[in-house]
Amino acid sequence: MAQASGLRVTDLSVQIGGLKAVSHVNLRLDPGELVGLIGPNGAGKTTVFNALTGFCQPTGGHIFFNDQELTHKPPHVVAKHHLARTFQNIRLFRDLTVLDNLKIAYHKNFKYCICSGIFRTPAYRRQEEMVRKVSLEILALVGLADRADDKASNLSYGEQRKLEIARALVMEPKLLLLDEPAAGMNPAETAELVELIYKIKNDFDLSVFLIEHDMHLVMNVCERLYVLDYGVLIGEGSVQDVRNNRKVIEAYLGEDGAWQS
């Protein structure tokens, strides 16, 4: 029971400047779930992700992941609890190779010390060999194996999105937060992305929390949804429940045709 508790967010509030970006939000994600977070532009979705991953400080509430309190923990500590994320505006290490991008994500698993690295001890060699293997495996999984030695900035937009997901996967996440993974993708790329998300869910033992504007993707992929508007949760439940929720429909009026697709 305690082991299987997943993500629990209670009464989360975030204030940025004078603005209440998120107020009194409760979330729950069980292991293995694939949940969407939707809402109109400026609803505070990314702020929720930032709070979960330690990039902004909550002004109230608590965040628990697998019974560990993560509230007010800095990002690098949150990452050690196997929470990985991607960013809305792709944040790759653009000047480095695809392979190095993944190696860096493996950082927290390295056990050798700085001296070991400088003197090239057997521990260094062993672990470097291993990270190379792991990274290439994951690259193969997302279909970027042949691009390992290319500079990240030379990848196409869709490939960069995939690389960012691959990089998150190297961290062996128990919870993967994807911030608008389909943004800017063409329909073919989006279809590939859906495949990839399914594959990740099957091959890895993790849950996925997803912000997305592409309603088609959300309705197809997500098992459950949370709807945020002006920093407040206005709906939650199955795709069908949310679709029939009056408040949600009102919030989306004006976002032309978002529901038609």
């Binding site: 990452a79 950082h107 927290k108 690295g117």
Partner: peptide
């Protein structure tokens, strides 16, 4: 050798994108 180790790569990742580096567990 330092740069070519995990620790050195962590340093380079800070130059490239400090926010992304932190999200990957780099202090």
């Amino acid at each position: 050798n330092f740069i070519d180790s995990s620790h050195g790569r962590a340093c380079v990742s800070i130059r490239e994108d400090e926010t992304a580096a932190a999200s990957l567990g780099i202090n």
